[in-house]
């Protein structure tokens, strides 16, 4: 890893060089009072001050709906057209928060723990992640409680921490980050010795992860799941905004003799998620589904995949239409 300084002017030149390299760039853009990742062509389109994009950036490596393969039926035979990894363009994810960058590891763990997921890997291997250290946070943020932090480098290829002069501390973390920086090498100059932490938000930990995990190991039959989920609507918003939720469905899209098999986002909070054809549903009640959500992220994933399925981004709490707050619920489990 290498630390450099990049001036405001240098940042603009570097961004233009990335645009000129014909890489696709996704960055947070403000529109109708909401900030979300959109394809951009200039640095001026990038949103300035905001807490969090509504959606995480996971769709860049796990699209909401993705064609697994296509087929055509011809005279009783079927011709298959496989997914082509080369159809995925080189992409730069710009101004990703460290909590979103940290989400790439759990996502990849889910997609690759047993067998390699060719589609996810095709996206990931063509993606460069430029994160920005966080200068602001709100009451839903809790990255520091789940092994993260406002300047955490996990998952980033290059991280910028903005300085008052409009320049930034540039931490070049991976070879991909280096390649991206090399598009405008003279923009990156010697580190001035700026204190990174002075330019990041101070966010004390809200709970002890170890304590939560040890409580969860014995909490399967606890009444807490019912209490906490009594008002849950099962709408799945929490899963759709989550940077690490990866549950999916496989559906068919048919037009005459042609068709496509499609992977699309799903959620363990949906009542139909586990419903058997026979009518039997192993997770019939919302409380069981809420329990699955929490245990999967904080207990099953750490044990099976050696990674926590939560990065503390707080989106699920912000998106919940009935104000179920994950931080509050996790804290109350830790305090039990």
């Amino acid at each position: 890893m290498e630390t450099k300084y990049i001036s405001k002017e240098g940042l603009g030149r570097w961004f233009d060089a990335i645009v000129a390299s014909e890489k696709r760039i996704y960055a947070p853009v403000k529109s109708r009072g909401q900030v979300d990742f959109k394809q951009v062509k200039s640095l001026s389109e990038v949103a300035d001050e905001y807490i969090q994009t509504t959606q995480s950036i996971k769709a860049a490596v796990f699209p909401k709906a993705e064609i697994l393969f296509s087929y055509e039926k011809v005279n009783g035979k079927v011709n298959l057209t496989d997914f082509d990894p080369n159809s995925v363009p080189e992409t730069v994810l710009w101004k990703v928060h460290p909590c979103d960058a940290a989400g790439f590891r759990p996502l990849s763990a889910i997609f690759n723990w047993d067998s390699a997921d060719k589609l996810h890997n095709a996206h990931l291997s063509r993606t460069t992640i430029v994160s920005y250290g966080c200068a602001i946070a709100d009451e839903s943020c809790f990255c520091t409680s789940v092994n993260g932090g406002p300047g955490n480098l996990n998952g980033s290829d290059l991280q910028l921490t903005m300085l008052p002069d409009g320049g930034a501390i540039a931490e070049i973390i991976t070879a991909r980050g280096e390649t991206l920086a090399s598009l405008c090498p003279d923009a990156f100059v010697a580190d001035r010795g700026d204190d990174k932490s002075a330019h990041l938000v101070d966010l004390p930990a809200r709970f002890s992860l170890e304590e939560v995990q040890s409580k969860l190991n014995k909490a399967f039959d606890s009444s807490v799941w019912k209490q906490q989920s009594e008002r849950c609507l099962g709408c799945g918003a929490c899963a759709f905004v989550c940077p690490t939720c990866a549950c999916f469905d496989i559906q068919e899209d048919v037009h005459g003799s042609k068709g496509r098999r499609i992977r699309c986002w799903d959620a363990c909070g949906f009542s139909l998620f586990t419903l058997h054809t026979s009518g039997h549903n192993p997770r019939e009640h919302q409380s069981q589904r809420w329990r699955q959500r929490i245990l999967h992220k904080f207990s099953y994933m750490p044990e099976r995949l050696n990674v926590v399925g939560c990065t503390g981004c707080g989106r699920c709490s912000r998106a919940c239409p009935v104000d179920m707050n994950i931080l509050e619920h996790i804290t109350s489990i830790a305090e039990q």
């Binding site: 889910i110 047993d114 997921d117 549950c247 496989i250 363990c268 998620f273 586990t274 999967h296």
Partner: peptide, 24 residues
């Protein structure tokens, strides 16, 4: 066990029961 499955290879999350995946 015959839990509902989609992927069959431990990714889609559907057959996860406790720490186990029925499919794996």
């Amino acid at each position: 066990l015959e839990n509902r499955m989609k992927c069959g290879v431990g990714k889609c999350g559907r057959c996860n029961v406790g720490k186990l995946y029925i499919c794996k």
